[in-house]
């Protein structure tokens, strides 16, 4: 299975390296404890540069979703229909995510989701969020 991925130079960044090892980590502030995404060199809450990484709980709620039925790129021609989601993590950050290919789900905004990291090769994995218990 192939999916679109970040260019190679990004895969050495901590966010992607943690995923490649199987866990979703969030960029966080070592001073105030807040998490932020996308990763940033400064905490948007207390403006500290003392940032690091912590494992996400994996608990989230569904903020929205959409079902792509029209392919907007040749590489997506055999993927449609697929589901794109916006998920709000317990840590207070939003992630773009999706539902793994082939999984049947019944979605509604506000439902509880949990993280499922799907590995594509030893350098690259993605954080999907699926209904709890699915």
């Amino acid at each position: 299975m192939t999916v679109i991925r970040p260019a190679d130079r990004y895969l050495d960044q901590p966010y992607w390296q943690h995923l490649a090892k199987g866990t979703l980590h969030l960029n966080c502030c070592n001073d105030c404890g807040g998490a932020h995404h996308p990763p940033s060199p400064i905490c948007p809450t207390c403006r500290s540069f003392n940032t690091g990484w912590k494992p996400a709980s994996g608990k989230a709620t569904l903020a929205s979703y959409a079902i792509a039925r029209h392919s907007v790129h040749p590489s997506l021609g055999d993927k449609v229909p697929y589901i794109i989601t916006l998920v709000d993590l317990e840590e207070g950050v939003r992630l773009v995510s999706g539902i793994p290919e082939g999984m049947e789900v019944d979605l509604h905004v506000g439902m509880a989701l949990e993280c499922k990291v799907v590995q594509f090769d030893d350098r690259f994995a993605l954080p999907y969020f699926v209904p709890v218990g699915a």
Partner: peptide, 20 residues
């Protein structure tokens, strides 16, 4: 962070606002 999930063009973002 969004392209790997097939979110590539503005029209798809608008569908997310619409569903919300």
């Amino acid at each position: 962070y969004s392209a790997p999930f097939g979110l590539l063009v503005p029209g798809q973002h608008h569908a997310l606002y619409a569903m919300a």
